[in-house]
């Protein structure tokens, strides 16, 4: 069962190591992990998808909350999230460019580069959609595949709930200038 955790952290060197080390050390299996900046300066946001049971996911949350660099952890409820993955695929067009381009349209993906005998396709969507696209294109020959892992957000949060998170995210993002390794 996969669980989606959203983790707000200080934007400091080494924070990713701390989070990744925690998952390794406690034996939580990471399916994907993405990290990037947020609407707040000095605050990063990680989306971690873990394959585990509910109790273990909850324990992961409690362990994450012990890290000094972690401001807030949310465990997203099932079915109430927007979960998006980005994939770039280089696909051979030797077996017919038009068929490939048709599939791109069907999946509402984009062609971002065209070479003599291949195209680069960009696709954003749920994990299932991307896997379906990959499966559809496999017979043509996938020359290269890069995926980002999931970025997720809860659906239907009222603005005051979002503000609460924003308030959490402002709790002293590092009074210390020291690098937290």
């Amino acid at each position: 069962m996969s669980h989606v955790l959203v983790i707000y952290t200080d934007d400091e060197p080494g924070v990713l190591t701390r989070v990744a080390m925690l998952f390794r050390r406690r034996g939580f299996n990471i399916h994907s992990l993405t990290v990037g900046p947020t609407e707040r300066v000095h605050v990063s946001r990680m989306t971690v998808v873990v394959d585990t049971d509910e109790a273990t996911a909850r324990r992961a949350v409690e362990h994450l909350r012990k890290l000094v660099n972690v401001l807030e952890v949310q465990q997203l409820g099932h079915g109430r999230n927007v979960v998006r993955d980005l994939a770039l695929l280089r696909v051979s067009t030797r077996q017919g460019r038009s068929e490939v381009l048709q599939l791109v349209q069907v999946f509402r993906a984009n062609v971002v580069d065209i070479a003599d005998d291949s195209v680069v396709i960009e696709c954003t969507g749920s994990l299932g959609k991307i896997e379906a696209l990959v499966d559809s294109l496999r017979p043509f020959g996938i020359l290269e595949l890069g995926r980002t892992g999931a970025v997720a957000m809860a659906r239907g949060l009222r603005s005051e709930d979002s503000n609460r998170l924003a308030a959490v995210a402002t709790v002293a993002p590092g009074s210390s200038g020291a690098m937290s390794v």
């Binding site: 890290l67 000094v68 200038g177 690098m179 390794v181």
Partner: peptide
């Protein structure tokens, strides 16, 4: 629990 590398 936590550690620091201080360079300044």
């Amino acid at each position: 629990k936590h550690n620091y590398l201080v360079t300044r």
